[in-house]
Amino acid sequence: MPSPLISAAALRAASPAPLLLDCSFDLADPGAGERAYDAGHLPGAVYVHLDRDLSGTKTGTNGRHPLPAREAAAAWMFSLGIAPGRPVVVYDRQNGMFAARAWWLLRWLGHADVALLDGGLATWVAADGPLETERPVPQPVAPYRVNPPAMPTIDVTALQAGLAGLRVIDARAPERYRGEVEPLDAAAGHIPGAVNRFFQHNLLPDGRFKPAEQLREEYAALLQGQAASRTVMQCGSGVTACHDVLAMEAAGLGTPVLYPGSWSEWSADPSRPVAVGD
């Protein structure tokens, strides 16, 4: 499996040049990422919005960032000019927090040639990469066959029924996992049996991912021998959990299962069990 990460140096040298997607976002200010994009982005990059492009319709019980319908997501992919064999690189200004969702979504749609810019915009600037403010005009492609989902997911019913046999990893900040604070969702705490792996712990101080060997050692301690196929990644709304999915792939540990609804869906039903503390 090719690495899900690409360095700034490798991106500058890439030929043909990949399609770039700027996924910058701010949960507290949904317009901030697009304003930052307009102030300066990688040359040729197209802006994609977490709510508009990378999420589906909310019902009040399916989480804050549910997956879009596959037909709608495929139409979005075609509208950007993403065709088979077209390399894509995603990035953001938030240590991959939102770019990882775009990486996962494209992989889910069957587009394998996608990587995340390791270190995001900051590492590009540090490598003297240029920025521009002009918005490119995407060149849509004709729709092509979208294969069945290429990334594994689990729904809330199957997760609740199978908790005893699954390893659940929660990517939220430790204080939210423990239930000490809950700024966004219906209840504080975590899914019973889940262990915590804050997505920021995948990173070095400069925002790049830790070396594969270090990630492999750290995740092995969490997995305790459980296979990737029996490991479920979740977070608040299925976004930063994709960061942990990517980290496991970067570590060579395989592709874990994503619970897209995550805590925002789980906690919306007061009949579901809740755990607090470590």
Rank of each mutant, 00 (worst) to 15 (best):
Pro2Asn: 12
Ser3Cys: 06
Pro4Thr: 07
Ala8Thr: 02
Ala14Gly: 05
Pro16His: 10
Ala17Gly: 09
Leu20Gly: 02
Leu20Cys: 05
Leu21Ala: 07
Glu34Gly: 09
Glu34Thr: 08
Glu34Met: 14
Ala39Asp: 15
Gly40Glu: 08
His41Asn: 07
Ala45Gly: 06
Val46Ala: 15
His49Arg: 12
Gly56Cys: 10
Lys58Ile: 13
Gly60Thr: 13
Gly60Glu: 13
Arg64Ala: 08
Leu67Pro: 01
Pro68Met: 06
Ala69Asn: 09
Ala69Trp: 03
Glu71Val: 13
Glu71Lys: 12
Glu71Pro: 02
Ala74Ile: 00
Ala74Tyr: 05
Met77Val: 09
Gly81Tyr: 02
Ile82Gln: 03
Ala83Val: 04
Gly85Ala: 09
Pro87Ile: 06
Val89Lys: 00
Tyr91Cys: 01
Gln94Tyr: 03
Met97Cys: 12
Ala100Ser: 15
Ala102Arg: 03
Ala102Lys: 00
Ala102Leu: 08
Trp108Ala: 01
Leu116Tyr: 00
Leu117Thr: 02
Val125Gln: 14
Ala126Pro: 00
Ala126Lys: 12
Glu134Ile: 05
Glu134Cys: 07
Pro136His: 03
Pro140Glu: 00
Pro140Gln: 03
Asn147His: 11
Asn147Lys: 11
Asn147Phe: 11
Pro148His: 06
Pro152Val: 10
Thr153Arg: 08
Asp155Phe: 08
Val156Leu: 11
Ala158Lys: 14
Leu163Ser: 04
Gly165Lys: 09
Val168Lys: 04
Ile169Trp: 01
Glu175Cys: 10
Glu175Gln: 15
Arg176Pro: 02
Leu184Cys: 06
Asp185Gln: 08
Ala186Ile: 07
Ala187Glu: 13
Ala187Leu: 14
Ala187Asp: 07
Ala187Val: 12
Ala188Phe: 00
Ala188Pro: 01
Gly189Ala: 10
His190Val: 08
Gly193Asn: 12
Ala194Val: 03
Val195Thr: 14
Phe198Ser: 10
Phe198Val: 07
Gln200Cys: 07
Asn202Gln: 10
Asn202Thr: 08
Glu213Pro: 04
Arg216Lys: 14
Arg216Leu: 05
Glu217Ile: 11
Ala220Leu: 12
Leu223Glu: 03
Gln224Phe: 04
Gln226Phe: 09
Gln226Glu: 12
Gln226Met: 14
Ala227Thr: 10
Met233Leu: 13
Gln234Phe: 02
Gln234Ser: 12
Gln234Asn: 10
Cys235Asp: 04
Gly238His: 02
Thr240Gln: 01
His243Val: 05
His243Thr: 01
Ala247Cys: 03
Gly252Glu: 13
Pro256Tyr: 06
Val257Gln: 05
Val257Gly: 03
Val257Tyr: 06
Leu258Gln: 00
Ser264Phe: 02
Ser267Gly: 14
Ala268Met: 10
Ser271Arg: 15
Ser271Val: 12
